[in-house]
Design a protein around this nucleic acid. Structure first.
Lengths: 260, 260
DNA sequence: GCTAGAAGTTGACGTAACGAGAAGGTCCAG
DNA sequence: CTGGACCTTCTCGTTACGTCAACTTCTAGC
């Protein structure tokens, strides 16, 4: 006795371990057309279809999109070439995921690593750092800068320890990206650099309503203030001058600052 | 002069390096609501919104889905816990991708690696293997088995070399998975094993219309035929008895075969 | 022949995270 | 007062199906 070589839709689905809805979908998009359709509209699949479905499922397991499968299966594209290209895409995606994982791990470390410092010390350190920065600004750019920092105090009033740590994590993440850009030889006034500074500017704006001149001044301050400079140099020793130049370029080109 | 602390939708978009459509989307789903909406319907965003957007974009860079962001940002879920769980998901996905890459690479190797063998040798080898298998079957199960293999010849008539190689690749891929299952201690008659055999059965059905008894017989044959056994043992030395048992269990439990 | 239940059919909507475009209202400078 | 930049809502499209809903067909039992 021979087994029937024709399968109904759910028989084929069971054989292949997929749903009949999937088979209907493949029919809809023309990827797998039944060998025969009965007068009542039932779909029937033969051995050729089973073979094709096997190839489809193999490709599906390889994460090949259905649109590409049609090209491959209909022979318009060489299977080997397609698989090689596809492999490249997969590797790229895997590497991207790895970068994301690294970033997440650094973020986690930042959020929970410094927990050995007590809350008092933590906030005291912040306050000292901030007041020093304020004095620096006041010395150099007059009382107006002092007012700016009053506003900064207001912006972060009510922040909890987590908020500061998160802000630090985000800042470090951005510095990482800038370091990569600098290492790639991107100039501080190149478009890519200014796009990164855009995000730095946004972070500064969130805590301090700096106008073009004040932001430009920040570019100098980062180099001259030892605390600030050390913090940045910790990420990348060559970053401070690059970032300083990038910030000043941004203030001029994107904020319309007129240097005196 | 203070910079305005309020931003229009496209100003904020530029600051953050995203599209205004994205901001509208975040508003629609309640992830980032503007601080103020003017009488003409314009959206206006304040510093708090800028801060929240920064957290959103950080999470977005970490591939966190928007639905989870709401939980995290609204404090229903601990940020650290969420990030740790998310890290686990990312690692899982990366590992899955790595497995897919491995499979693709093996498939490529199979498809192009044996090209040193000439076409004549390739098909001659196949013919020998097939005729031996046929004699084995005929010896043991009578002339009916011979007829089955005539049908098998018809099914593969017109196949090209690529078709055979692809079939081999698929078969090896399936054997890989079965080997993993066996190594995990899954019994040959467990549901997971039978589900894998379902796919083996489908592959066999594609080239050979075997009924329950014939498929059951194949289970024995895999063990006794040295060529077949060697091919399977090459993937995993312990696989032949496991696969043989699994095939027979499948024939009995899923195909309703009655052993005599 | 009738009927219940299994299995089939065609829509149509929902998913995630927006992009693209249409049609129309608002704002500001010259 | 008018042109152009900017804003609005609405809708469709994207991927690979899951999930109803409403209806028809097949098959087995009485």
């Amino acid at each position: 006795m021979f087994v029937s070589v024709e399968h109904s839709i759910s028989q084929l689905a069971r054989l292949a371990g997929i749903s009949s809805r999937t088979l209907r979908h493949y029919h809809d998009i023309g990827l797998l057309v039944p060998s025969r359709i009965s007068s009542s509209g039932y779909r029937w699949y033969g051995r050729r279809q089973l073979l094709r479905l096997q190839r489809i499922l193999l490709l599906r397991e390889l994460d090949v999109p259905l649109s590409q499968m049609r090209e491959i299966l209909d022979g318009q594209t060489d299977e080997l070439t397609a698989l090689r290209r596809h492999r490249g895409e997969l590797v790229g995606e895997r590497d991207r995921l790895q970068q994301v994982i690294d970033t997440v791990e650094r973020t986690i470390a930042t959020l929970c690593g410094d927990s050995t410092v007590s809350d008092e010390e933590f906030f005291a350190g912040l306050a000292v750092g901030r007041s020093r920065l304020r004095e620096d600004l006041a010395d150099r750019y007059g009382a107006a800068a002092r007012e700016h920092f009053v506003a900064a105090g207001e912006a972060t009033a009510g922040w909890g320890r987590q908020d500061y740590q998160r802000a630090a994590a985000e800042g470090r993440h951005l510095l990482d990206e800038m370091s990569r850009a600098r290492a790639l030889g991107i100039a501080p006034d190149a478009t890519e650099a200014l796009d990164l500074v855009t995000r730095h500017h946004a972070q500064v704006l969130a805590v301090w309503p700096a106008d073009a001149a004040a932001y430009h001044a920040l570019g100098d301050l980062l180099l001259d203030n030892p605390d600030q400079r050390a913090m940045i140099a910790q990420v990348d020793p060559d970053l401070p001058p690059w970032l300083s130049a990038a910030i000043k370029a941004y203030a001029v080109h994107r904020l319309g600052h007129q240097p005196t």
